[in-house]
Design a protein around this nucleic acid. Structure first.
Lengths: 197, 197
DNA sequence: TAGATTTATTGACAAATGTCAAGAGGAACT
DNA sequence: AGTTCCTCTTGACATTTGTCAATAAATCTA
């Protein structure tokens, strides 16, 4: 496994792009983030548990999902470079209404809610970075809202292709289908109509 | 019209609930926010314009909408107490992909992007407040994502009733329909099945 | 590699919703 | 009050998607 510094380089880069962070903050982040490798198919957050960690996905693929009746709905798909939390649960430290699982072998860097609050206390300027990051995720989430209002299954699948093409082969179609809010059979038919793109 | 202080009291309250703000910041906010009254049916942000303002909706009702082909889709409904922006446009100061219009006579307090940046510079701790507010809106947006994945029109309409019942009579049904991503005719039929709630 | 298990595909059909059209009901304006 | 315009409702029908079932394909496991 690579060292923490190397694995966190992408995260440090994201932060520096927002506004250069000072060495002390960088050192604290590298110190507080705990890197771990997680095999494919592991649930890193279970529904009803409190999301006590924020993960930076150094490498890999994740999905969040929740159950409605007997159906499982994939709500988000997260890939390398993403900051991963269950928003409602992490922000308010209340039980999660969704689970998060790995769709591939992953390397993640984990920061606990409490350690993050410490960092906010010691480096108030860090609020600026996370405000901008939250704004970015907010905007991306809005894109998904637009997607779900698209008229037909083909338009929704095209959204998926535009945004997640690189991960197409690694995500079981049934998950893609529920992410797009269509039946797996409909996705299968849509794909064959579009020529298996 | 009431004075700026009275109209902004609710906003100041929201901020103080997050973390008490000092007098100087409060004074600056009251000074920088410009209150105005806007009649029903006015477009306060036009698609393709840059969203240069953040509005605090002191009193009234707004919706955001965008066009897809010949269809108009209502993306958000915002009522008294909401902080209103077109997220993608305001955060990045790029052209908006949606418009915002009043659905009733409104009183708003307006703060320009530039004035907000000044406030961030003078009061870095304000990033903390807006980070938490952004997190809250992020979470509410996620609720709308869940709604759009609900199985049928009745479930979507129930979501609307649970979240916007107070504004039911003030929002034309065709807007509610597109917000829920169903045809106006379907909403009409769904309502009559549910007994006109 | 063989067998078991899960996932994807395809067909037939059902159900929900969308579309089009006509008319009723309200709101706004003169 | 009457006219006009827009929204809502209702019906008939078309279309899309969902559901169920059978089979094929792929993946996992021993």
């Amino acid at each position: 496994m690579q060292n923490t510094y190397t694995l966190l380089a992408a995260l440090i880069q994201i932060l520096n792009n927002i506004q250069p962070i000072n060495n002390e903050l960088e050192r604290s982040l590298i110190e507080e983030f705990k890197v771990e490798e997680i095999g494919k198919g592991k649930v890193i957050l279970h529904e009803k548990d409190i999301c006590k960690n924020l993960w930076f996905l150094c490498d890999g693929l994740l999905r969040s999902y929740h159950n409605i009746g007997d159906k499982e709905i994939t709500s988000r798909i997260m890939y390398t470079g993403h900051i991963v939390i269950s928003p409602g649960s992490f922000f308010t430290q209340t039980p999660a209404t969704e689970s998060i699982e790995t769709l591939a072998d992953c390397a993640v860097a984990k920061l606990s809610f409490n350690d993050l609050q410490d960092i906010y206390k010691r480096f108030p300027e860090f609020n600026y970075h996370t405000r901008l990051i939250t704004e970015q995720y907010f905007y991306k989430q809005e894109q998904r809202l637009y997607m779900l209002r698209k008229h037909d299954a083909a338009a929704k699948y095209n959204f998926f292709l535009e945004n997640y093409a690189d991960y197409l082969k690694d995500i079981p179609q049934k998950y893609i289908a529920s992410f797009l809010n269509i039946a797996p059979e409909t996705l299968s038919r849509t794909r064959s109509k579009l020529g298996k793109k």
